Amino acid sequence: MKVLVPVKRVLDYNVKARVKPDQTGVDLSNVKMSMNPFDEIAVEEAVRMQEAGTATETIAVSVGPAKAQETIRTALAMGMDRGVHITTDEDLEPLAVAKILKAVAEAEGAELVLMGKQAIDNDYGATGGMFAALMDWPIGQYANTLAPGEGTIEVKREIDGGLQTVTLKLPAVVTTDLRLNEPRYASLPNIMKAKRKPIEAKTPEDLGVDTTPRLTIVKVTEPKTREAGVIVETVAELVDKLKNEAGVI
């Protein structure tokens, strides 16, 4: 089984986001960037499948600027076989990314696409569903446990009421949730090996994909500063403040 894993370069989750002075977006200059945490989980699961003999080849694909190659190298250091870099300086919308992934998946002959359920920078969470619709593949979202079978994959997925088990016929798409696994740290020998693994570079134009944006960002602003709390002496005072000051009851 050939497994394709999209990985995205995002603002590191430990870094506080800052809005650009002109309010056109988040300021990414001189800040630490890293692989999207949900994508790390997808990479880990693909590597585990390969170690178990289920996956015959694992491919990491990233859509982004030149520095996105660093994210691919991280995936290769974790154990992925090779990478595909779709170079663009645009901040693409989920539909454009889904179209690019469709072209890559078809060219590679992927049988399973594992991807994070969402990216922590924009929180769209729509790419997996759009990609599955474009491919006309079944999708198991928010995966908690995976069990590959003969021509199928069983997905235990997280839902509001607990866990739901679905069996998907391959080829299929699975989006990963936090409880699926604990991603490994890349060892120094694997980091050195990753430098020699191949990364194929293409552009959306090479794939014949139109990435024209459909949405317009009007303005990006920081959230309102949270006010300090107050200590109340009695329950009656608490109720009074909730009713007359906060207006929540």
Rank of each mutant, 00 (worst) to 15 (best):
V43R: 00
V26W: 01
E90T: 13
A96H: 06
G109H: 09
D177E: 05
V3N: 03
P94T: 05
V218S: 07
P183G: 11
A46I: 01
K99P: 07
K169D: 14
V7L: 01
V61A: 01
V10H: 01
E158K: 13
G162D: 10
I231R: 09
E90A: 15
S187Q: 15
V31G: 05
R82M: 00
R184S: 08
L170T: 07
G161F: 15
I199H: 00
M35Y: 06
K67V: 13
A119D: 07
E154T: 13
Y185L: 02
L76E: 00
P183R: 08
L11E: 08
L92C: 04
T87P: 05
V15F: 12
T152E: 13
M49F: 03
T221P: 15
E205L: 04
V235I: 10
P94V: 12
D89H: 03
I199M: 02
D210K: 10
E233S: 12
T145K: 11
M49P: 04
T87L: 15
A96F: 07
E51Q: 13
A143M: 02
D121C: 05
V235W: 13
Y124C: 06
N144E: 14
I153A: 01
G25H: 04
L188A: 11
R184K: 11
A68L: 06
R196V: 04
D123A: 10
T58S: 01
V220L: 11
K8C: 07
A228R: 14
K193Y: 14
I139P: 13
K202M: 08
E245S: 12
D22Y: 10
V15S: 14
P213W: 03
I120K: 10
T176I: 01
S29C: 12
E45L: 03
D177Q: 05
A55T: 00
G208S: 04
I199W: 03
G229D: 05
A143W: 03
G129S: 11
V248I: 14
K202E: 10
G149C: 11
A194P: 06
T88W: 08
Q69I: 07
A107V: 05
M80S: 06
Q141D: 14
I191R: 09
V230Y: 09
K102G: 09
T87E: 15
R82W: 00
L28A: 07
V113P: 01
S62K: 03
L168A: 02
K193T: 09
P171F: 10
M49H: 05
V5R: 00
L134S: 09
E45K: 04
D81Q: 03
G162H: 11
K102F: 12
M130R: 02
G53W: 03
V63Y: 03
R157P: 08
K156Y: 09
L11M: 12
E44P: 00
Q164T: 11
K117N: 07
G53I: 04
V230P: 09
I199F: 01
G64E: 08
K241G: 13
V7F: 05
L11D: 07
I231T: 15
M80I: 02
D81Y: 00
D81I: 02
R9Y: 04
